[in-house]
Design a protein around this nucleic acid. Structure first.
Lengths: 346, 346
DNA sequence: GATTTTAATGTAAACGCTTTCATGTCGATG
DNA sequence: CATCGACATGAAAGCGTTTACATTAAAATC
């Protein structure tokens, strides 16, 4: 039954009811898996529904039932594939429930973000999934007070405790930095992400801690503030390579910037990893495809989406208010963009 | 006004109406930009709405008005960034109208696709945007007969005439092939996409036509049937390079497969472009970032999304049934993965 | 100034469903 | 045999809008 045209004139519960010889209320009960329906009756109704090609009207259900069976997904943009991975996870998980997904792109505009949230929370959707929220402080408190279900994805707040899934950014950056140190690097450049994002802060902290642990003094000039975009990587690498005492390795806070770094390094006629080691963060699909393949810290993006969706559904179904922050482990993926520094190798 | 809590108890048109001292019908008129409202009254209502933080209930509007102000977007998946670009375009265009976007991922399952379409067309959405539809024949006819608005994106049907936006795939492949021929290549390998997709067929035809035009005999063994995924590129390249008389250039039907080709070529210890030239199709963001940067045929993905959204909105608003297939021009982007063949260059 | 048009607003009936409450049926109980 | 409960079903009241249709007020016509 692809699409039942013969019956095109709207099939409502009324039609189904009369076809099955019951009242429309009974049909509604069947739809909603109400226990108080005789199995035989249920069968008859189900059969009629099938025969007529009945499809429930979602808006009507929402209006009457007070829930939309829709969850809202707010993302900054869709450019990098980073978000795509997360959505894939969400989508997979949602396909088990009967929920629909409404997509909103904020284009990194904080105002738009707050506005969307305000509207959505007024009944358009039953729950909210917020990816990489810009400044959620604006609305999280309200959402919480209203008891409106939501889950933050990839946001480490300094704020209160609320449902969120993230990755162990600190740990990931720490491990990667330590790896570089163990290769023999002493001067390691770092390019930050947008510092208004918790994950960017955490990564920087991880880098710093690793240096501290290994008694390598931190040089402010080795830290370049970027914004998670590729040109920042390029600019950052240029700035770092222009230092009198340039780094032998550069750690970019995400893969996209790392690509920019690679570009800059190559432009200068330097080779990766022989002259400069490069490390990224995220493990987006193309990081394996660039040349040389990028050593990076893997974020379990798809899994993050999955887990977030599960959490939200759980809150929705069981009104389980106790779900809290979950951190998924990152993993260092060693590829070919890193090696011991030249002077030491030689 | 981020979110008006003081008034949290549901604000409906009734509340607004009494606050503005008018009947609720008038409020509805204001919302729907009805001409028959005195400007002064409209002002008063608008003011009340703003003060109370009124947000219209979408489900109710849909139910009563018969339209959902939502358009459905059906995509195969979100893995490659290819779709992301298209969505970006759609999203941009939609942000001007008041439409929402519901996202459905079919995971390349034809059955799921038909099913979604069936459901959606029954009132959940006002119109449908179908990206890279799998076998739309199943439902296009029904959709058309029902007069349900939809636009196909990136699908060249052999079928009847219906609203669609695509790219000049044939032309793009022709131009790229011709470029390789002009570089001096005589044996050019070709890796196809999924041949159940119109665009894949067109690209193959473009390749063939270019050969024919330049009187180069077509060798069946130089054509490898792929599926648009990276491993197909790898496998295809291996097969082609294993020929007794291997090609001096390989043209993959999309960038993702071209990456696979590059991988295979490097694995064999051959150099790009010195030993083998590689050309892709799509110009996805990472094609500029791989090494060497990939020569490819640019598809105006973002623009395709934009145009498709415009078309749909146009159909929706003006019931303009005359919109038809639009083909956006492709463009050959020459980067560093191509050069004259070795024997001739040497 | 009485009458017709037109503009502005109000009234009430859908829209398709969920859900509470009331009704009816049946087997079991005293 | 009358009574009680549990279970199955029906009836009806919303849910928050849109949209004919009806009404009123104001402007225009003669």
């Amino acid at each position: 039954m692809i699409m039942n045209d013969k019956f095109s004139p709207k099939i409502t519960i009324f039609e189904v009811a009369s076809a099955a010889g019951v009242s429309f209320a009974t049909v509604s009960r069947v739809i909603n898996h109400d226990a108080h329906v005789k199995p035989e009756t249920r069968e008859r109704v189900l059969d009629a529904m099938h025969r007529l090609g009945y499809v429930a009207n979602r808006q009507a259900r929402s209006l009457a039932g007070g829930k939309s069976n829709t969850i809202g997904l707010l993302v900054p943009d869709l450019g990098t594939g980073y978000i795509g991975e997360i959505i894939r996870g969400i989508d997979t998980e949602l396909s088990w429930s009967e929920m629909d997904l409404i997509l909103y792109t904020t284009h990194r505009t904080a105002a738009k973000e707050a506005n969307y949230v305000a509207n959505l929370a007024r009944g358009m959707v039953d729950g909210l999934l917020l990816v990489l929220p810009r400044n959620p402080v604006d609305y999280i408190e309200t959402l919480t007070r209203r008891n409106f279900p939501f889950v933050l994805i990839d946001h480490q707040g300094i704020e209160e405790n609320c449902p969120a899934v993230g990755a162990t950014n600190w740990q990931g950056a720490y491990t990667a930095t330590e790896y570089l140190i163990q290769l023999g690097h002493k001067r390691i450049g770092f390019i930050t992400g947008s510092m208004d994002l918790g994950c960017a802060v955490d990564r920087l902290q991880g880098y710093r801690s690793a240096l501290r642990t290994h008694h390598i003094p931190e040089s402010p000039e080795l830290i370049y503030e970027g914004n998670f975009f590729q040109p920042d990587g390029y600019a950052g690498a240029c700035a770092l390579l222009d230092l009198k005492d340039p780094p032998t390795a550069i750690f970019a806070s995400n893969d996209v910037m790392a690509m920019g770094v690679m570009d800059a390094v190559r432009t200068r006629g330097l080779r990766i990893p022989d002259d400069i080691s490069v490390v990224g963060f995220d493990n987006i699909p193309q990081s394996a495809m660039v040349y040389p393949p990028l050593t990076t810290v893997q974020q379990p993006l798809e899994q993050m989406g999955r887990v977030a969706a599960q959490m939200l559904i759980n809150i929705l179904k069981n009104n389980d208010k106790d779900t809290n922050r979950i951190e998924l482990p990152t993993e260092l993926i060693i590829r070919s963009s890193t090696s011991p520094p030249k002077d030491r190798a030689g």
